[in-house]
Amino acid sequence: MTYCPMGDVWSQYGKAGMDIGHLYCEIDHILFEAFGMKLERPYCIAKGDKICKFNLKML
């Protein structure tokens, strides 16, 4: 993904906002696991990367 609306919201609060946003993004791992998938995200906008990359594997 190259755009994240939540990233826009978090960025309005500076570094502290992005740190909280990155924690918020961690819930994605739990959500995908509930659907039988493992998420690896090497790039995350809330972590300061230009993109979010989602690598999914079936459990």
Rank of each mutant, 00 (worst) to 15 (best):
C25W: 08
D28T: 10
A46I: 00
G48R: 00
C25L: 12
L59F: 11
E33K: 14
D8T: 07
I30E: 15
M18C: 04
C4S: 06
F32V: 09
N55R: 09
Y3V: 07
K15Q: 10
V9S: 06
L39I: 06
R41M: 06
L23S: 14
K38Q: 07
N55A: 11
K53A: 04
P42G: 04
M6R: 09
M37I: 08
G21W: 03
D19F: 02
D49F: 02
I27D: 15
H29A: 12
T2I: 10
I51G: 00
L59Y: 12
G14P: 01
R41A: 03
M6T: 09
M37W: 12
I30V: 15
N55K: 11
L23D: 14
Y3E: 08
G14N: 03
A34D: 15
G7H: 05
A34I: 11
G7W: 00
E33H: 13
E40R: 11
K53F: 05
Y13M: 07
I45M: 05
Y43N: 01
Y24T: 13
D28Y: 09
T2P: 05
Y43M: 01
E40Q: 12
E26M: 13
I30F: 14
K50R: 11
M58T: 10
I20C: 10
L56T: 05
V9G: 06
C25I: 10
